[in-house]
């Protein structure tokens, strides 16, 4: 039951079908990479799982440790333990990272429970130190005027503070220079472990030089068409995506 199980998921965006009978099982403690050419539905998968209102699930099931995610509101999914690291995180002027994280942590407590502020700050600073994020960061407005790298690091900090059961990283590597990519990858490596499953959605193999996946899935035309070990990523890097397309065409 300690899995994120996606069964025959069909998703449409603006009445166009993007995901077609998409199925995947992500066990806790593992890192799975999803790769694939542009426009194949990778980001749609991430957004549909996180409950974005523009993405309509027409059929299928998503079970988080046996709980039906699709019946939950966006905020309930997050509190149930699903975390989405966004490709393009929103900028929220006037809301400091500290207040934002406090509200998110408070939301995970019972109604009569009050967040212990001193403990919260202590924990936050420890995690920032571990992730090599400057403590001054917390008084800045969420993503407001951040560089691409800072935004992604902020996503990692949130992941560290919210301790999700399953994290979906939606092209976290896109737009990062090599230093930022290394820092973000180090963060993920520090956080991953037996208590968390990671779904790493990426277009490029590059990030897999830093984060070693247990499995690599190739997505094409709205579903997974090939799965394998980490060596599959290298093969894709070498040969591109065309041979996959040819394979799919042959079996169709």
């Amino acid at each position: 039951m300690s899995t994120l199980e996606i069964k025959n998921l069909n998703v449409t965006v603006a009445e166009t079908e993007i995901l077609r009978d998409f199925s995947l099982t992500l066990p806790k403690g593992e890192v799975h990479a999803i790769m694939g050419p542009n426009g194949t539905g990778k980001s749609t998968l991430a957004k549909a799982l996180a409950g974005h209102p523009d993405y309509e699930v027409t059929s299928g099931e998503v079970l988080l440790d046996g709980e039906n995610v699709l019946e939950m509101e966006v905020d309930e999914r997050a509190r149930a333990g699903l975390f989405m690291a966004f490709q393009y995180p929103s900028e929220i002027p006037g809301v400091s990272i500290a207040n934002f994280l406090r509200a998110a942590r408070q939301a995970r407590l019972g109604e009569d429970e009050e967040l212990e502020v001193t403990k919260f700050y202590k924990e936050m600073y420890e995690k920032m130190d571990a992730l090599k994020i400057d403590r001054k960061f917390t008084s800045r407005s969420v993503n407001d005027g951040f560089s691409g790298g800072e935004k992604k690091r902020n996503e990692i900090l949130q992941m560290a503070m919210l301790e999700p059961k399953y994290a979906i990283m939606d092209e976290t590597d896109s737009g990062l220079d090599i230093d930022a990519l290394r820092i973000v990858s180090e963060g993920v490596n520090k956080l991953k472990g037996p208590h968390m499953g990671v779904l790493l959605i990426t277009h490029y193999q590059r990030i897999l030089n830093y984060i070693t996946p247990d499995q690599v899935h190739v997505m094409f035309d709205g579903r997974i068409v090939k799965s394998g070990g980490k060596e599959l990523a290298l093969e894709l890097e070498e040969k591109g995506y065309d041979w996959i397309k040819d394979e799919v065409a042959q079996t169709a």
Binding site: H52, R79, M84, N99, S141
Partner: peptide, 26 residues
């Protein structure tokens, strides 16, 4: 912005408050 807050588990009503505080912060 609202979606981003919700996606971190912040309930809608709390998210409205946070965004209001943010609106005033300027």
């Amino acid at each position: 912005q609202l979606y981003y807050l919700l996606a971190r588990g912040i309930p809608r009503k709390e998210a409205y408050k946070l965004l209001t505080y943010g609106f005033f912060e300027e």
